[in-house]
Amino acid sequence: MLKLEKICKYYNPGTVNEMCLFEDYDLEVEKGEFVSIVGSNGSGKTSMLNIICGSIPLDSGKLYIDDREITKMPEHKRAAVIGRVYQNPALGTCPDMTILENMSMADTKGKPFNLRRGTDKERIGYYQELLAGLGLGLENKLSVKVGALSGGQRQAMALLMSTMTPIDFLILDEHTAALDPKTADTIMELTDRIVREKQLTTLMVTHNLRYAVEYGNRLIMMHQGENVMDLKAEEKAGLRVEDILQKFNEISIECGN
């Protein structure tokens, strides 16, 4: 379970440009929930993910994972239980290293990065099996550098790598936004499959209302640092894009975008 308690976050504090993003923001995410988060630009979606992951500091408030406070825990320590896929496909993989080396690194997460062989030869078959599951033919390109792959292929690998070792949360930060519509669909289906298989608690920020409605079992719409809509389980089950589109237009027009 993930809990955000009375979160406050200001940008440019003490200057004329001071902007309050969150004031006493609360959120609870239950184990096994797949939350889609939508909202206009500047509504705080990505900032919230950054706060959860520890990428940006908090002004006040508390964060808990299963009753354990993590407010002060540095980003890399939180990453032990969090898998994150970014909007930019380049951030989830290492472009100068081969597919095999990248897979090996992801497999070593949670274990010591010591002087043992970087790639365990006995695991290669397992990696190929995982890559074959992507259906992109990457299992036959183990010695190709990841930098030579397309954005969609890289994002698929990033997704695979971030969920390879056991994690408590999967954080998806507009992870289909930089892809063409067809590749985005493929990645989204893959995401759904992995989340179901591993029963991951997931937070997904997206600009694609269709994905938000189609996938996941909870939908949050954010606006100016608040949840203006929060639909769970059965409320969300019968939801159609048109139902949230009107609300979304209202808040968008209000902001002028």
Binding site: H76, K77, A79, Y86, L91, G92, C94, A106, T108, S162
Partner: peptide, 10 residues
């Protein structure tokens, strides 16, 4: 080459 990945790896 990508220090974000190092953070992601914990």
């Amino acid at each position: 080459s990508n220090d974000t990945l190092v953070t992601s790896l914990g």
